[in-house]
Simulated scan of single mutants.
Amino acid sequence: MRFTRRHPLLTAVLLCALAVLAARPADGDGSHAPGHGSASGVSAEVARLYEEAAAATERYEAGRREAEKQRAEGQRLEERLDRERREMAVLHEDLGRIASSQYRDGGGLPLTAHMLLADDPEELMRGQRVVRQAEVSLDKAIGRSERAEARLARDEAKAAAAWKELEERNTELAALRQGIERKLEAARWKLQGQADASVAAGACRGAVRLDQPRTRFTTSWVAPVETYELSASYGSGGARWANRHTGQDFAVPIGTPVRAAGAGEVVKVSCGGAFGIEIVVRHAGGYYTQYAHLAAVAVDQGERVAPGQWIGQSGTSGNSTGPHLHFEVRVTPETGSAVDPVPWLARHGVSL
């Protein structure tokens, strides 16, 4: 306190100098500055657009399935309508044959004259009753068929209208999805540009606090990304690796949320070098998982993470030929101690 009172100007200068030093990133040592970095806006935008694109795709796929269902229903009704019409044509032919038969058998004469001329009037009466019953049955069948045809025609028209409406809505949803994906692609490369700048400087920009998904995992272990294609595997050869590939690569677009494979503590967040932006998490049992070639991080060193928690976003930083997540399982936090992650995950209930 005595020092402050005697030298107020010197104190102000020292405080300013300390503030400047605190604001400077570490010089080329791959260290990680906690807190929100300047990339947070782009990272959050990529994460938001990623979820919007997924939701738009889900709505489009649901609409497409419903449209296919309506189209199939319309086709089914059309086939039934064709059958009804063919049956109607047969019934009309039957009615025509009965009328022709009556005419040939003297249908134009009064029934009394038929009875006088007949050898067996009772047999004639029985024949007349059979004919009338056949006519009545045929008339009823034709009436039912006509009503069924009208009903089917209405149902077919409704199904066709519903299918057309769904097709129009799906066209709109497809356009919406394409618009979101264009924005997402632009934001992804902007995010990657910031990641490349961080790697070149050797200092991460800070954790971006992404809105976590609502899903809560009941399992202890999960795959490090939700949707993926497996690419380079553990132990595979290649010119880009000094010896053999030390992890499992997941081919995913830039900005894809990367998940903690299991509960643990973040022991390393760094930028620079062959792995670009990377995170290492320590788990119970003496194992570590590494997540490399990221575009952004969402956790700080020393932070506890839960299974499935978003800890970063995939990218193509460092020694990378394209967007993917490089995932390793190690027995130490450092490179060179990796084990094959695919059977290791399988033993923990995660099949890739």
Results as ranks from 00 to 15, higher is better:
residue 53 A to T: 10
residue 55 A to K: 03
residue 58 E to H: 12
residue 60 Y to T: 05
residue 61 E to A: 10
residue 64 R to S: 10
residue 66 E to V: 00
residue 72 A to E: 01
residue 73 E to F: 07
residue 75 Q to Y: 02
residue 75 Q to N: 08
residue 78 E to V: 06
residue 79 E to K: 13
residue 81 L to C: 02
residue 83 R to E: 14
residue 84 E to S: 09
residue 87 E to I: 14
residue 87 E to G: 13
residue 88 M to G: 02
residue 89 A to G: 05
residue 90 V to H: 15
residue 90 V to M: 15
residue 93 E to A: 12
residue 93 E to D: 14
residue 94 D to G: 12
residue 98 I to Q: 06
residue 99 A to R: 10
residue 100 S to Y: 00
residue 100 S to Q: 12
residue 101 S to L: 15
residue 101 S to D: 08
residue 102 Q to Y: 01
residue 102 Q to L: 14
residue 103 Y to K: 06
residue 106 G to F: 04
residue 108 G to W: 15
residue 108 G to P: 01
residue 109 L to R: 12
residue 111 L to G: 05
residue 114 H to Y: 08
residue 114 H to M: 15
residue 117 L to Y: 08
residue 117 L to T: 09
residue 118 A to D: 03
residue 119 D to T: 11
residue 124 L to H: 01
residue 125 M to F: 11
residue 128 Q to A: 15
residue 131 V to K: 07
residue 131 V to F: 07
residue 132 R to S: 14
residue 134 A to P: 06
residue 136 V to T: 13
residue 137 S to L: 13
residue 138 L to P: 11
residue 140 K to Y: 15
residue 141 A to V: 05
residue 144 R to V: 00
residue 147 R to A: 15
residue 150 A to K: 11
residue 153 A to T: 05
residue 155 D to C: 05
residue 157 A to P: 05
residue 161 A to P: 01
residue 162 A to C: 07
residue 166 L to E: 02
